[in-house]
């Protein structure tokens, strides 16, 4: 179920990128895209009844773990996503300083 939500989130992110004219909104759309993507990646490794891939004292002898690899990937992806978002926001500030607006349509330059 969450897999579908992830795909819808992806699509919504793309939709936002297409329709929004505000720099901040575009970054938000990017974030939504990334969240969708991360969910999707996790859902790829997940199957019903799987266990979190963490060894504890209660882990059964023959554990039925979900695939841990996607989770590792997502960790990396999240960090990278934050980096991009931060950079985008910094750029948004720069853009604001330069043009006095965050709306792409109101900037003279095209």
């Amino acid at each position: 179920m969450l897999q579908f939500a992830a795909i819808i989130l992806l699509m919504l992110g793309l939709y936002g990128l297409l329709t929004q004219r505000n720099v901040i909104k575009i970054i938000i759309s990017l974030n939504i895209l990334e969240i969708g993507l991360n969910l999707f990646i996790i859902s790829v490794g997940y199957f019903e009844g799987g266990l979190a891939p963490i060894f504890t004292s209660e882990t059964p002898a023959n554990p039925n773990f979900v695939d841990p690899l996607p989770q590792a990937l997502v960790l990396t992806a999240i960090v990278i996503g934050v980096g991009t978002t931060a950079l985008g926001l910094a750029l948004a500030r720069k853009i604001y300083q330069k043009y006095g607006t965050l709306n792409l349509d109101e900037m003279g330059e095209n």
Partner: peptide, 17 residues
């Protein structure tokens, strides 16, 4: 040209996504 860099960032991020 922050706007152009921003465009680059958006395109690049979507691409890598």
């Amino acid at each position: 040209k922050p706007l152009q860099t921003f465009n680059y960032l958006v395109a690049g991020t979507v691409g890598s996504s």
